[in-house]
Design a protein around this nucleic acid. Structure first.
Length: 235
DNA sequence: CCCTGATTCGC
DNA sequence: GCGAATCAGG
């Protein structure tokens, strides 16, 4: 998988939208969580509430009297190279007092993170999915005015992005079947309409009626705009 | 154990 | 530039 513009856009949107790297990787598909994180950092959009980085203080000389690594750099020699012949020698020999016996299993609730969208429904954890354009798609009960910047303007033709096309390749999707998405990506029953397309359009006749709004005479416009990916459920 | 992001470094 | 391996905190 390569980082196309769409994929980078989705990654950026989701990353800034607060999705975890795993969610992003799962949504993008074909990439691992590490790949997402690595790419995010390479893109320069890092710095999000990290469980590891939340703490920032100076390392005072508390323990570790034995410092066998007088590296010229005072900076952190934390991560060890994996492939190299790293000498795993004396490291835990000095920690017997507190490292071995005293290990309080402090694994308790891990629900301390701040959710931008406090769900009131405990049945569904948090379904955040993203449309082909990369904008945040909200569920029916998630109505909340100020979430992401704004959906992209001018989505007139409602043309599905290559992301959908990727998933279509897994299914029996080609240029002659309707690409109208049924359900949401990631759900087990997510699929496409699959009917014969309206010639010249990516959708069947029925869904063309939903994707394309007839240009009515002025003053007789229909308020509800067609949003193939924005609505709650289309089925 | 699980999860998370950060970082390093071989490719 | 990419991402697996690794680290480290919750």
């Amino acid at each position: 998988m390569s980082w196309t513009e769409e994929r980078i856009a989705t990654l950026t949107k989701m990353w800034e939208g607060g999705s975890t790297a795993s969610q992003i990787a799962d949504e993008l598909g074909g990439v691992s969580r590490n790949a997402v994180i690595g790419k995010a950092h390479r893109l320069g959009l890092k710095a999000r509430p990290s469980p590891v980085k939340a703490n920032e203080k100076k390392a005072d000389g508390k323990k570790k009297s034995a410092a066998p690594a007088p590296s010229p750099k005072p900076a952190a020699p934390k991560a060890k190279p994996r492939g190299a012949a790293a000498a795993p020698a004396s490291q835990q020999a000095a920690d017997t007092s507190e490292g071995t016996a005293a290990k309080p299993a402090a694994a308790k609730t891990q629900d301390g993170n701040v959710q931008p969208n406090p769900e009131k429904r405990p049945d569904l954890p948090k379904i955040v999915s993203y449309g082909p354009g990369g904008f945040l798609r909200q569920g029916p009960g998630d109505q909340q005015p100020p979430i992401p910047p704004a959906p992209p303007r001018r989505l007139v033709p409602a043309k599905p992005s290559p992301e959908i096309a990727d998933k279509t390749s897994l299914l029996d999707l080609n240029d002659r079947v309707c690409r109208w998405p049924m359900g949401h990506p990631g759900e087990p029953d997510f699929h496409f309409c699959g009917d014969k397309v309206n010639p010249g359009f990516p959708y069947c006749v029925e869904h063309c009626g939903r994707a394309y709004q007839a240009q009515l005479p002025r003053g007789a416009r229909r308020p509800p705009p067609p949003l193939p990916f924005g609505g709650p459920r289309v089925r």
